[in-house]
């Protein structure tokens, strides 16, 4: 009986210590960017869900803190508590960042009012002839960054997508 109890104790001890050594926690900084990431979304967003499930296969627990994007990028560079930022466009990171392969995919598009005509044959022509709203804290792919620099008077900067949306609502 004593031997059996001892065996159970040894088994429990081994289970606990094995778990402690095999589990790792990664803390990352993210942004509120629905549906990809956000504290109030199911599974904290579709991209966060993919990453969590992926890391779980290696017994890695993901902790996500949601911050304004600039703050997230700053903290990862200055606070050792944060390992990385996610989800990020490869252009929109920080100096000397180590980039993973694609974990999820987003889209970049042009948003307009349904009833509004928007005629253009190129990104350059779009920016040349129309007022364009952009999120000021994002670094866009080169084709857009070039146009933003070329036509600064056409650009309306917004701090986030919600502000961009409000510009449409009240225009």
């Amino acid at each position: 009986m004593l031997l059996k109890q001892l065996s159970i104790l040894v088994f429990i001890y081994m289970a606990i210590t094995t778990k402690a050594y095999s589990e790792e926690t990664w803390k990352i900084a993210s942004l509120n960017w629905p549906p990809y990431s956000g504290p109030e979304l199911a599974h904290q967003g579709s991209s966060i869900k993919i990453l969590k499930e992926l890391l779980k296969k290696n017994n890695i627990t993901l902790i996500v803190e949601f911050l304004p994007w600039q703050r997230a990028k700053y903290l990862v560079q200055t606070d050792p508590e944060y390992l990385a930022i996610f989800p990020a466009w490869p252009e929109d990171v920080f100096d000397n960042a180590l980039l993973s392969p694609a974990i999820d995919w987003s889209e970049i598009g042009i948003l307009k009012r349904t009833q509004q005509a928007l005629n253009f044959d190129s990104i350059d022509e779009l920016f040349k002839n129309h007022a364009i709203g952009v999120v000021s804290t994002y670094i866009y792919p080169k084709v857009f960054e070039d146009a933003i620099k070329k036509y600064p008077n056409q650009i309306e900067h917004a701090p986030n997508e919600f502000s961009l949306l409000m510009n449409f609502r009240f225009s």
């Binding site: 007022a131 709203g133 225009s171």
Partner: peptide
């Protein structure tokens, strides 16, 4: 006011 916006 923006006539278009570039984002996701």
């Amino acid at each position: 006011r923006s006539s278009a916006a570039i984002t996701d």
